[in-house]
Amino acid sequence: MSTVLGEAAPAAAAEAVPETPAAPAAPAADARTAAVAAEPSVTDVIRDAIVRGEYAPNQRLIEADLSSTFGASRATVRTALLELAGEGLVERLPNRGSRVRAISLDEAIEILEVRMRVEGLCAAKAAANVTDDEVAELRRLRDDMTESVAEGDLVEYSRLNRHLDVRIRDLSRHATASEVLGRLHAQIVRHQFKLSSRPQRAKVSVLQHAAIIDAITARDPEAAEQAVHRHLQSVIDALRELAS
């Protein structure tokens, strides 16, 4: 983009009207730059595919195939896989490329135990920081989650659940905790998907999420933190029960 603009300048100068073409060019360039910035990166796209279960645990991730699938260069795909390895989603194998890292039940439980503390911190911070407009937003989200479970729309409930997790991190205004949680959550999403697809579990989960929202909107940091602890302990217990 910068090369094209750089080549256009001498032509404009030869016509002795450099200002005329330059004025409209800037907004167009800004719009194109904004559009590119809004597009998800290859790392984001592959991460989402792993999280959604499109690639199974231990499945090989072949750079040539990913390059063709996502329309990206091999170098870009290789960089994305290195980034995802740093997040714990991909495992790099010496002389054998990459594969989706399998997370055992025991490791998933350990991750949930860490999330319990960090998400509790975020919920407490959110309760201390939440504005009136954000209170209204969270209450609408609470109603939508309750309605989706009542209607048996577990796909929508799962989407709203993920949105709530992200919003609580945002409202905490705690960048370090948010970054940690983003990585931890992605690693065990497949285990939690097994639970969220069970109607009886959703009926329990939605009440726990409502309690978290109620504590945050009441601006009660201690209650918000405890509500998160109870919810994630319930997830741990349910995973153990499912495994047995």
Rank of each mutant, 00 (worst) to 15 (best):
A11M: 12
R32A: 14
R190F: 02
S41N: 02
V180T: 12
A9K: 08
V90S: 01
R47K: 13
A16I: 06
R115D: 00
D220P: 06
A38L: 14
L181E: 04
E113C: 00
P18T: 13
I46E: 05
A31N: 06
A243T: 08
A102H: 01
R74Y: 13
S205E: 14
V42Y: 07
E119G: 00
P21L: 04
D214N: 13
T69L: 14
P57Y: 02
V17P: 00
V36G: 00
M116A: 10
Q192R: 09
A25P: 00
R52P: 01
G53S: 09
E222V: 12
Y55W: 12
D133E: 11
T131H: 04
I50M: 06
D153M: 04
E137V: 07
A26L: 14
A124E: 06
V114I: 15
R96Q: 15
T43R: 15
R198N: 10
K194C: 08
A126C: 10
P199W: 15
I103Y: 02
K194V: 09
L138D: 03
A75W: 15
G88K: 03
T176S: 13
G88F: 12
R169S: 11
V228Q: 05
P21H: 03
S197M: 13
L232Y: 13
L164N: 00
A177N: 02
D144W: 04
R96G: 04
E19M: 09
A35R: 09
E241D: 14
V155T: 13
P40S: 13
V206M: 06
E107A: 11
H174D: 15
T131A: 15
G71L: 09
V206Y: 09
T3K: 13
E110P: 00
V235C: 05
N95W: 03
S104L: 07
V51E: 03
E151H: 07
R201D: 09
A56K: 09
I109L: 15
P94K: 07
R240V: 13
K203P: 01
C122S: 07
K194S: 12
H174Q: 08
A126I: 11
V45R: 07
A124L: 10
F193G: 11
A243V: 08
A23L: 14
A243Y: 13
L93S: 02
N129G: 11
A9Y: 10
D170W: 01
T3R: 14
D143G: 03
E222A: 14
L195P: 04
V204A: 08
V36P: 00
E19R: 03
C122D: 01
E225D: 08
L232A: 05
R96M: 07
V206E: 03
R139Q: 11
E87I: 07
P24T: 11
S98G: 00
E179M: 05
I216P: 00
I109A: 00
A124D: 05
L195A: 09
L141S: 07
S196D: 07
R190L: 03
I109D: 07
G152P: 01
A108S: 12
T43C: 14
P57D: 02
R183L: 12
P18W: 06
H191F: 14
I50D: 01
N95H: 04
D214G: 05
F70T: 03
K194E: 13
A227T: 05
L141W: 00
